[in-house]
Write a protein that binds this DNA or RNA. Structure first.
Lengths: 200, 200
DNA sequence: GTCTATAGGGCGATAGAC
DNA sequence: GTCTATCGCCCTATAGAC
């Protein structure tokens, strides 16, 4: 069971959801057992099916939340009509790293579940128009870069998100986990600087 | 079954290994079924246990291969005493992208399996000394950068590997899969250029 | 709504014939 | 070495009492 008063005032339904978020994110859909979720939430296994019908349906709810969390952070910034390109870079780096410091395995969970069942979950993102026709991409195009703006987008996401995806490996190269977090916090200011040099 | 003459002259053991590579990489350990592997290799389910004792043992062999493939590509380059830093950047980008164009889901497979069972597989990498004390890191240190050399390493791996990890999502933003591969090939020359500008 | 008990099916692994 | 048949366990889901 969770420590502290985390679940004191939660409804049964919300207790199950909270446990499902944790277990699915840690283990992935296939390795997660409904028994784990029931135990983690301190309720009976039968109640899981009473409230959510099936493991699959419960997972879909969790997945929808996680996808929205991961892409809902960046899409509004990309689409902001009121900010310049450089300001968007600052905001993306800062808000993404803040998000990922609290939810470090959000990206690898979402990416690996999408890869395992692309037909089901890739459409959930539905980002093609919202990204390719975003203000951000138009602003990149107006800079008359020598390379495709996709390269810049890939680089921005790569240097921001990758250290969290590869955290289990990379953090072993550093002294300890706190030191790794310190590096990540530094990157909130470094990433926009690096990307700006790619715009020339 | 596989098309072409892929398995014509393979021993039964190697046929099972080949199928195991495919099924484990596509589905991950938990979602893969030994029955899938048996069917894929065109042999009987009982033979899998006859040759490999268990699903777990077979997986360990596949995992060892994949980890060596992923890290065996970069470690020798990082450790090369005969090349300058800039040449190492060229080689890493080129050899990694060539590797990942042929094995696009190698990184996400390895990273997500390590994350699911770090106590078991993280030690398999065992890269701490080989990376932190490598010629590459020493060469970075001698450049008197204003930031930790780890940032440069993270950026190099990030812009190289991330587009493959996020491929199921990012390739949807592009016209088609071939166009995505074209972008990746361009990056073999672009990545060293971008990283070099970070050294100033 | 919440519980206990169990059905029903799938999975990894093995026995034993050839 | 290779097969068929099957065991025994574990997992999801449900029936039915309270």
């Amino acid at each position: 069971m969770a420590k502290g008063k985390k679940d004191l005032d939660l409804s049964t339904e919300e207790k199950i959801m909270e446990a499902a978020r944790k277990v699915f994110t840690e283990k992935g859909y296939a390795a997660a057992r409904t028994r784990d979720i029931a135990e983690e939430s301190g309720i009976n296994l039968a109640l899981l099916n009473y409230y959510f019908r099936s493991k699959e349906k419960l997972f879909e709810l969790v997945m929808l939340e996680k996808v929205n969390k991961l892409f809902g952070t960046i899409i509004p910034i990309l689409s902001d009509e009121t900010t310049e390109l450089e300001e968007k870079l600052d905001k993306i780096a800062e808000s993404y790293i803040d998000l990922l410091l609290v939810n470090p395995d959000l990206p690898i969970f979402v990416l690996s579940e999408i890869r395992r069942r692309p037909e089901k979950f890739a459409q959930l993102v539905n980002a093609k128009e919202r990204v390719t026709k975003s203000v951000f991409m138009k602003q990149l195009l107006s800079r008359k870069l020598s390379v495709s703006p996709f390269h810049i987008l890939i680089n921005l996401l790569g240097i921001t998100v990758f250290p969290f995806v590869a955290r289990p490996v990379l953090s072993k190269l550093i002294k300890n986990e706190e030191e790794y977090d310190t590096l990540m916090k530094q990157r909130k200011e470094l990433i926009p600087m690096w990307i700006k040099t790619m715009l020339n």
